[in-house]
Computed example of a mutant assay.
Amino acid sequence: MTTFQALLVEKSEDKTFSRSVVERHVDELPEGALLVKVKYSSLNYKDALSASGNPGVSRNFPHTPGIDAAGTVVSCDDNAFNEGDDVIITGYDLGMNTSGGFAEYIRIPSSWAVAKPDGLSLKEAMVLGTAGFTAGLSVQGLVENNVTPEDGEILVTGATGGVGSVAVALLAQAGFSVVGCTGKDSQADFLMSLGASRVINRDSLLENKERPMLKEQYAGVVDTVGGEFLAQAIKSTQYGGVVTCCGLTASAQLDVSVFPFILRGVSLLGIDSVQCPVPPRVKLWDKLAGDWKLNQLEALTTEVGLSQLDEKIDAILKGQLSGRTLVNLDL
């Protein structure tokens, strides 16, 4: 019987939650056609919520979080993949209510996996992970709606986070002038190293919140935090500009008038990476492995093992992490 290491979140009788690395058996995994030996995962904010018992993410415990996984196929009952194939799994229910990537093995429906493109290693795929995939969808949304570098600056909110930092790097590499917005003044050099042309403090974005419209500043926006930051970004977008929305760490509420939409023709695009269909999912991974492959992946990355995850989970919940945290299951 195959055993493996996994991060397990357990709920006590007093409704508190604890995390520990334990030994599990493959036959304890949920049903699914595809069994994968996980090489790498990554830490996302949603993982930290799951690991803390947030009922909006995970309801059943004990549970192994990890919404990302990259590894090698051990077996596939429906022949969608062959033994030895390298695959990437992001989104769907992985790590939410299905045992996730913070473990050496996962068992899932084969439809949740895509073949790793040749231009990415398994490690590089998980430096990107859900955060990088979401950033790619956001940048793609701007480009497909005809936002070009010549149109002006692109604002990225939550710029030091996983999605934000990858978005800054992708946009800068594509020739855009990027404004990184962050509450971490100490990380300005980090954002400049990723290609940001300038960095603003989030407090400056929140000035004049009472106004229904603000000065036109940005040709496009990648918003990763929601709430009043998204509202202020919309108010500051140029005529015909495009705003993408993918996060809610600040708030799920949006208090904004219709004026930016009907007086400036601003477009608001919702970005969802969880249920993204397979064909566009494969197409975007191919881009991220090809024309959009980042040169600064190492600069984005802190690498940890399962035993170091507990402290990183606490740190991301406190807003203390920057860039991407890669989980190496062999460490």
Results as ranks from 00 to 15, higher is better:
residue 1 M to L: 12
residue 2 T to I: 11
residue 6 A to K: 02
residue 10 E to I: 04
residue 10 E to Q: 13
residue 12 S to R: 00
residue 14 D to T: 05
residue 14 D to L: 05
residue 15 K to H: 11
residue 18 S to E: 12
residue 18 S to L: 10
residue 21 V to Y: 08
residue 22 V to H: 09
residue 28 E to H: 07
residue 29 L to F: 04
residue 32 G to A: 13
residue 36 V to E: 08
residue 42 S to D: 10
residue 46 K to Q: 11
residue 49 L to Y: 06
residue 51 A to K: 06
residue 53 G to M: 05
residue 55 P to C: 14
residue 58 S to P: 09
residue 58 S to R: 07
residue 60 N to Y: 13
residue 69 A to R: 00
residue 71 G to K: 02
residue 72 T to C: 09
residue 73 V to T: 01
residue 74 V to F: 01
residue 75 S to F: 09
residue 75 S to A: 15
residue 75 S to I: 06
residue 82 N to W: 03
residue 83 E to S: 10
residue 83 E to T: 08
residue 85 D to C: 12
residue 88 I to C: 05
residue 90 T to E: 10
residue 90 T to W: 00
residue 90 T to L: 13
residue 91 G to Y: 01
residue 94 L to R: 04
residue 95 G to E: 14
residue 105 Y to T: 06
residue 106 I to T: 06
residue 114 V to C: 05
residue 118 D to C: 08
residue 120 L to M: 09
residue 124 E to P: 01
residue 126 M to D: 04
residue 126 M to V: 00
residue 128 L to M: 12
residue 131 A to T: 05
residue 134 T to L: 14
residue 137 L to N: 07
residue 139 V to H: 02
residue 142 L to K: 07
residue 143 V to K: 00
residue 147 V to G: 10
residue 149 P to Y: 15
residue 149 P to C: 15
residue 149 P to N: 15
residue 151 D to L: 07
residue 153 E to L: 13
residue 155 L to W: 02
residue 155 L to T: 04
residue 158 G to I: 04
residue 159 A to K: 00
residue 159 A to S: 14
residue 160 T to L: 14
residue 161 G to E: 13
residue 164 G to Q: 04
residue 166 V to L: 11
residue 169 A to P: 05
residue 170 L to W: 04
residue 172 A to I: 06
residue 173 Q to P: 02
residue 174 A to I: 06
residue 175 G to H: 08
residue 176 F to N: 09
residue 177 S to W: 08
residue 178 V to H: 01
residue 178 V to W: 06
residue 180 G to T: 03
residue 186 S to N: 12
residue 188 A to P: 02
residue 193 S to E: 15
residue 194 L to D: 09
residue 198 R to Q: 14
residue 205 L to V: 11
residue 206 L to G: 10
residue 207 E to M: 13
residue 207 E to K: 12
residue 208 N to L: 05
residue 212 P to E: 15
residue 213 M to F: 05
residue 217 Q to Y: 06
residue 218 Y to V: 09
residue 220 G to M: 04
residue 222 V to G: 11
residue 224 T to V: 10
residue 229 F to N: 13
residue 233 A to N: 03
residue 235 K to W: 03
residue 238 Q to C: 14
residue 241 G to N: 11
residue 243 V to M: 07
residue 245 C to V: 10
residue 245 C to E: 14
residue 250 A to V: 10
residue 253 Q to E: 15
residue 255 D to I: 05
residue 264 R to F: 07
residue 273 S to G: 12
residue 274 V to T: 13
residue 276 C to Q: 15
residue 282 V to Y: 06
residue 282 V to W: 00
residue 283 K to S: 13
residue 285 W to P: 00
residue 286 D to C: 06
residue 289 A to K: 02
residue 295 N to V: 07
residue 300 L to A: 11
residue 302 T to P: 05
residue 304 V to I: 15
residue 306 L to D: 06
residue 307 S to E: 15
residue 308 Q to D: 15
residue 310 D to R: 00
residue 317 L to W: 04
residue 320 Q to A: 15
residue 322 S to R: 10
residue 330 D to G: 12
